[in-house]
Lab assay of single mutants.
Amino acid sequence: AIERGSKVKILRKESYWYGDVGTVASIDKSGIIYPVIVRFNKVNYNGFSGSAGGLNTNNFAEHELEVV
């Protein structure tokens, strides 16, 4: 089962992080479509409006993740 702290591989082909491994930061139990927040070591794009980097978290559905 996917739980907080799990290392997961991203299976969503259109994702910037496809094939990468991230760490589960949290799981939303409220029934939303993409409840699993995954944190990565790298950012997906340069930040804007003065922020240092881009996003390094993204929401995924459990079926888009594979525990490694």
Score class of each variant (00 low, 15 high):
residue 1 A to I: 13
residue 1 A to W: 10
residue 2 I to M: 07
residue 3 E to T: 13
residue 3 E to N: 11
residue 3 E to D: 08
residue 3 E to P: 05
residue 4 R to H: 09
residue 4 R to M: 10
residue 4 R to E: 13
residue 4 R to T: 13
residue 5 G to V: 01
residue 5 G to R: 01
residue 5 G to I: 03
residue 5 G to K: 02
residue 6 S to I: 08
residue 6 S to R: 05
residue 7 K to C: 15
residue 7 K to W: 12
residue 7 K to P: 05
residue 7 K to T: 10
residue 7 K to N: 07
residue 8 V to L: 00
residue 8 V to R: 02
residue 8 V to D: 02
residue 9 K to N: 03
residue 9 K to H: 03
residue 9 K to E: 02
residue 9 K to D: 02
residue 9 K to T: 04
residue 9 K to P: 03
residue 10 I to H: 02
residue 10 I to Y: 02
residue 10 I to D: 02
residue 11 L to H: 05
residue 11 L to A: 02
residue 11 L to D: 00
residue 11 L to K: 06
residue 11 L to F: 02
residue 12 R to Y: 03
residue 12 R to E: 01
residue 12 R to S: 04
residue 13 K to V: 13
residue 13 K to C: 10
residue 13 K to S: 06
residue 13 K to W: 08
residue 13 K to L: 10
residue 14 E to Y: 05
residue 14 E to C: 12
residue 14 E to L: 06
residue 14 E to N: 10
residue 14 E to F: 06
residue 14 E to P: 04
residue 15 S to R: 00
residue 15 S to T: 02
residue 16 Y to H: 06
residue 16 Y to R: 04
residue 16 Y to G: 04
residue 16 Y to A: 06
residue 16 Y to W: 06
residue 16 Y to M: 06
residue 16 Y to P: 09
residue 16 Y to T: 05
residue 16 Y to C: 07
residue 16 Y to V: 08
residue 16 Y to K: 05
residue 17 W to S: 00
residue 17 W to A: 02
residue 17 W to L: 01
residue 17 W to H: 05
residue 17 W to V: 01
residue 17 W to D: 00
residue 18 Y to R: 00
residue 18 Y to T: 03
residue 18 Y to E: 03
residue 18 Y to A: 03
residue 18 Y to M: 02
residue 18 Y to P: 00
residue 19 G to E: 05
residue 19 G to R: 04
residue 19 G to C: 10
residue 19 G to F: 05
residue 21 V to Q: 04
residue 21 V to N: 03
residue 21 V to D: 01
residue 21 V to T: 09
residue 21 V to F: 07
residue 21 V to G: 01
residue 21 V to Y: 09
residue 21 V to S: 02
residue 21 V to H: 04
residue 22 G to L: 04
residue 22 G to I: 07
residue 22 G to Q: 01
residue 22 G to P: 00
residue 22 G to Y: 05
residue 22 G to N: 02
residue 22 G to M: 05
residue 23 T to Y: 08
residue 23 T to W: 08
residue 23 T to V: 13
residue 23 T to D: 04
residue 23 T to H: 05
residue 24 V to H: 01
residue 24 V to C: 04
residue 24 V to G: 01
residue 24 V to Q: 01
residue 25 A to F: 08
residue 25 A to I: 15
residue 25 A to Q: 14
residue 25 A to P: 01
residue 25 A to N: 05
residue 26 S to Y: 11
residue 26 S to P: 00
residue 26 S to K: 10
residue 27 I to Y: 08
residue 27 I to K: 03
residue 27 I to W: 04
residue 27 I to H: 03
residue 27 I to V: 08
residue 28 D to R: 05
residue 28 D to Y: 05
residue 28 D to A: 07
residue 28 D to G: 05
residue 28 D to N: 07
residue 29 K to S: 12
residue 29 K to A: 07
residue 30 S to Y: 07
residue 30 S to A: 08
residue 31 G to S: 12
residue 31 G to T: 09
residue 32 I to D: 12
residue 32 I to E: 09
residue 32 I to Y: 08
residue 32 I to Q: 13
residue 32 I to T: 14
residue 32 I to H: 11
residue 33 I to T: 10
residue 33 I to A: 15
residue 33 I to S: 14
residue 33 I to P: 14
residue 34 Y to H: 11
residue 34 Y to D: 07
residue 35 P to I: 11
residue 35 P to D: 09
residue 35 P to Y: 09
residue 35 P to Q: 11
residue 35 P to E: 10
residue 36 V to R: 00
residue 36 V to K: 00
residue 36 V to A: 01
residue 36 V to P: 00
residue 36 V to Q: 00
residue 36 V to C: 03
residue 37 I to W: 15
residue 37 I to D: 02
residue 37 I to K: 14
residue 37 I to C: 15
residue 37 I to E: 11
residue 37 I to S: 09
residue 37 I to V: 14
residue 37 I to Y: 08
residue 38 V to D: 00
residue 38 V to M: 00
residue 38 V to H: 00
residue 38 V to T: 00
residue 39 R to W: 13
residue 39 R to F: 12
residue 39 R to S: 10
residue 39 R to A: 10
residue 39 R to N: 09
residue 40 F to K: 01
residue 40 F to P: 02
residue 40 F to M: 02
residue 40 F to R: 00
residue 40 F to S: 00
residue 41 N to T: 12
residue 41 N to M: 11
residue 41 N to G: 08
residue 41 N to F: 08
residue 41 N to P: 09
residue 41 N to V: 11
residue 42 K to W: 07
residue 42 K to G: 08
residue 42 K to I: 06
residue 42 K to V: 09
residue 42 K to L: 08
residue 42 K to P: 06
residue 42 K to S: 09
residue 42 K to C: 15
residue 43 V to H: 14
residue 43 V to I: 13
residue 43 V to L: 09
residue 43 V to N: 10
residue 43 V to D: 13
residue 44 N to G: 08
residue 44 N to D: 15
residue 44 N to R: 07
residue 44 N to K: 14
residue 45 Y to K: 15
residue 45 Y to S: 15
residue 45 Y to D: 15
residue 45 Y to T: 15
residue 45 Y to E: 15
residue 45 Y to W: 08
residue 46 N to E: 15
residue 46 N to Y: 05
residue 46 N to C: 15
residue 47 G to L: 04
residue 47 G to N: 07
residue 47 G to T: 06
residue 47 G to R: 03
residue 47 G to D: 15
residue 47 G to V: 06
residue 47 G to A: 07
residue 48 F to N: 14
residue 48 F to G: 14
residue 48 F to V: 14
residue 49 S to A: 12
residue 49 S to N: 10
residue 49 S to F: 11
residue 49 S to T: 12
residue 49 S to W: 12
residue 49 S to P: 11
residue 50 G to H: 08
residue 50 G to C: 15
residue 50 G to K: 03
residue 51 S to W: 07
residue 51 S to T: 13
residue 51 S to P: 12
residue 51 S to Q: 10
residue 51 S to N: 12
residue 52 A to F: 11
residue 52 A to P: 12
residue 52 A to G: 12
residue 52 A to Q: 13
residue 52 A to Y: 09
residue 52 A to H: 11
residue 52 A to M: 13
residue 53 G to H: 11
residue 53 G to W: 05
residue 53 G to I: 11
residue 53 G to R: 03
residue 53 G to L: 10
residue 54 G to S: 10
residue 54 G to K: 06
residue 54 G to W: 10
residue 54 G to R: 05
residue 54 G to N: 09
residue 55 L to H: 11
residue 55 L to V: 14
residue 55 L to E: 14
residue 55 L to I: 14
residue 55 L to M: 12
residue 55 L to Q: 13
residue 56 N to Y: 10
residue 56 N to P: 09
residue 56 N to D: 11
residue 56 N to H: 08
residue 56 N to F: 10
residue 56 N to A: 09
residue 57 T to W: 15
residue 57 T to G: 07
residue 57 T to C: 15
residue 57 T to P: 05
residue 57 T to V: 10
residue 57 T to H: 12
residue 57 T to Y: 13
residue 58 N to I: 08
residue 58 N to A: 15
residue 58 N to L: 07
residue 58 N to R: 06
residue 59 N to L: 04
residue 59 N to M: 08
residue 59 N to F: 08
residue 59 N to K: 08
residue 59 N to G: 12
residue 60 F to A: 01
residue 60 F to E: 01
residue 60 F to I: 00
residue 60 F to W: 02
residue 61 A to Y: 06
residue 61 A to M: 07
residue 61 A to C: 07
residue 61 A to D: 05
residue 61 A to H: 05
residue 61 A to L: 04
residue 61 A to K: 06
residue 61 A to N: 06
residue 61 A to P: 02
residue 61 A to Q: 06
residue 61 A to E: 05
residue 62 E to R: 09
residue 62 E to Y: 15
residue 62 E to H: 10
residue 62 E to T: 10
residue 62 E to S: 07
residue 63 H to Q: 06
residue 63 H to E: 12
residue 63 H to T: 07
residue 63 H to R: 06
residue 64 E to S: 01
residue 64 E to F: 03
residue 65 L to Y: 01
residue 65 L to F: 03
residue 65 L to M: 03
residue 65 L to K: 01
residue 66 E to A: 08
residue 66 E to Q: 12
residue 66 E to W: 07
residue 66 E to V: 08
residue 66 E to I: 08
residue 66 E to S: 06
residue 66 E to R: 06
residue 67 V to P: 07
residue 67 V to K: 07
residue 68 V to Q: 08
residue 68 V to Y: 05
residue 68 V to E: 03
residue 68 V to F: 06
residue 68 V to N: 02
residue 68 V to R: 03
residue 68 V to D: 03
